[in-house]
Amino acid sequence: MINWIWICMAAIGIIYAMFSGNMEAVNEAIFTSAAQAVTLAIGLISILVFWLGMMRIAEEAGILRGLARLFRPIVTRIFPEIPKDHPALGYILSNLTANMFGLGNAATPLGIKAMEEMKKLNNNSDTASRSMITFLILNTTGLTLIPTTVIGIRMQYESASPTQIVGVTLLVTAIGTIAGLIIDRIFYYKSTWRKS
């Protein structure tokens, strides 16, 4: 799908330029924007190195594990179908805390482990279980505490206050997550209601 979107953006732009007379601007944009993207990616190194460096210390210091313990009572309530001492819960908690701190690379394998455990709980069926969908919703609503990449981009374009957006982003994430959980419940009850 993304391949088609990408082709369409470039192709529509070039065809439109044929008629709007902006071909010169398009020609220039191709090369300046490619150079701009490289500068940006290189510039992002600073914040990514700093943040991932800090997170390694946080991990070793047990901050992530501590947070996982803190969230356990809430998470058991969000996943009523998973037994309280089941390993799936541990993976879910580690995945969620890793996501919160923007450790996407660490979060994904943990998330897959969590899904595997939930599949076992669901008799290895190829149908998504209620817990799997809830977990998916928690991942797609993006529970991020600090949006490091966005802050990095804002820094690159000389924002007067790159972190200005942190508070609002946090609020929007919280609203999205709560809304996601409510929607998930509504869909779940609707699906059981239809069956009975």
Partner: peptide, 26 residues
């Protein structure tokens, strides 16, 4: 962090260029 930023580079070049074509064409 270095690895992450470098692996982002080709994605950003591809996407930003396509969007810039769309923008500059009007």
């Amino acid at each position: 962090g270095v690895k992450t930023a470098v692996s982002l580079l080709p994605f950003l070049v591809g996407m930003i260029t396509a969007i810039s074509i769309l923008r500059s064409s009007g």
